[in-house]
Structure formats: structure tokens, C-alpha cells
Simulated scan of single mutants.
Amino acid sequence: MEGNDNSRTPLSPSAREALDELAPVIEETDDHLSREEARSHLHQIDFDAEFARTTLDELLNKGYLYDVHGELRLP
């Protein structure tokens, strides 16, 4: 992912932390993760429910994740 960061909008530190946590999980689970699974994983690393939701929105809006039929995927 690091090689692609230069062409994307920078992430907040919390979104970077979330992506660093979620990317390996997504890669290990057939390259997708439901939003609920992602929120649950973020909750395990001390993101409260609202913060996890807004952080996932940031990752989606800035193109670091994308949603296919409710499943989060890496570009």
C-alpha cells in the first residue's frame, strides 16, 4: 500500500492505524471483510463504535478501501 499513497489524499493518523490493522485481515479473509467485521476488529483495538464508523468512511471516501455489495476490499 505504501507505494500508492503518494497519489491519494493523506489519511488522518487514526485512519492510517485502522488501515494498518485491517489490510492484513482483509488479505487473509479472501480479500474482503464485511463492514460489521471491520467495525468489530476496530472495536477490539479501542475504537468506539462511532469512531470506527467515521474512520471506515474516511478510508472509503479517500479510496483506501472500497465497498462491493457490503464487503470492504483493498484496491
Rank of each mutant, 00 (worst) to 15 (best):
P75D: 10
D67H: 01
R39N: 04
E58I: 08
L74E: 03
E37Q: 15
D48H: 10
D20R: 13
L65P: 06
S7L: 13
R35A: 06
S40C: 02
P24Q: 05
D46L: 08
K62D: 11
F51A: 15
S12L: 09
E71K: 12
T9M: 07
L60P: 02
G63N: 09
E27C: 06
T9P: 00
S40L: 10
E37G: 05
Q44A: 14
M1E: 09
F51P: 00
E21A: 14
L72G: 11
Q44C: 01
D46Y: 06
H69G: 14
A15M: 10
P10G: 07
A52L: 08
A23V: 07
N4E: 10
G70P: 01
F47N: 07
S34H: 03
E2H: 11
E50F: 07
E17G: 02
T55G: 06
T54D: 11
A23R: 14
Q44S: 15
L60R: 12
L11T: 05
L33Y: 05
L11I: 06
R35F: 11
Y64E: 04
E21L: 08
R16V: 08
N61R: 11
L56W: 01
R16C: 04
L22D: 06
P10Q: 13
P24A: 04
L19G: 02
G63L: 07
D46F: 09
H41T: 15
Q44F: 04
D5L: 14
V25E: 09
R39M: 13
V68I: 09
L33V: 05
E28R: 14
L65Y: 11
E71S: 09
T9K: 11
G3K: 10
L72A: 10
L19M: 11
I45W: 00
R53M: 06
F47T: 03
D30Y: 14
E17M: 13
I45D: 00
E36A: 13
R8P: 00
P24R: 07
S12N: 08
E27Y: 06
D5Y: 10
E21V: 11
L33C: 06
E50Y: 07
H41Q: 15
H41V: 10
Y64F: 15
R8V: 03
I45S: 00
V25D: 02
E27S: 13
F51L: 12
D30G: 02
L22G: 08
R53G: 02
S7Y: 14
I45N: 00
A38E: 08
G3D: 08
V25L: 15
D48I: 01
P24N: 06
Y64A: 05
E50T: 12
G70D: 02
Q44E: 15
S14W: 02
E37P: 00
H41M: 04
E17H: 12
P13Q: 14
E50C: 00
E28D: 12
L11R: 07
E28M: 09
S34W: 03
D48W: 04
E28F: 03
L59F: 05
D31S: 14
S12W: 07
R8E: 10
E36R: 07
Q44W: 00
S12Q: 09
E36W: 04
L42Q: 04
N61H: 09
